[in-house]
Amino acid sequence: MASLISCPHCGTRPKEEFSIRGAVVARPQPGAKEDAWYRYVFIRDNPKGRYQEYWHHAAGCRRFLVVDRDNLTHEVFAVTDATEFAKNAEVAR
């Protein structure tokens, strides 16, 4: 993970090509209460273990990717285009 990321569009690329945005958290619906927005922006699950994080392939396809990985062992389970991820999440919801 920390060294190489398999971008679904560009193939396996070194970490230097990416910038990391942070935790994947769903944005509330526009009508949500302020508390939901506060939690969205400021509160983090911050688990020790499996974790989903946005990585931006800044020096590649410029797509946001959801990197599903373990933040203790650094094992990567999946790398998905963020749009596809969002659509899948939508379907799941």
Binding site: A2, S3, K15, E16, I20, K48, W55, L72
Partner: peptide, 14 residues
């Protein structure tokens, strides 16, 4: 920092 979330006490080469 290495920019990604991590609980491992080690960093990356980049």
């Amino acid at each position: 920092i290495d920019y990604y979330s991590s609980y491992a006490q080690r960093g990356n080469l980049a």
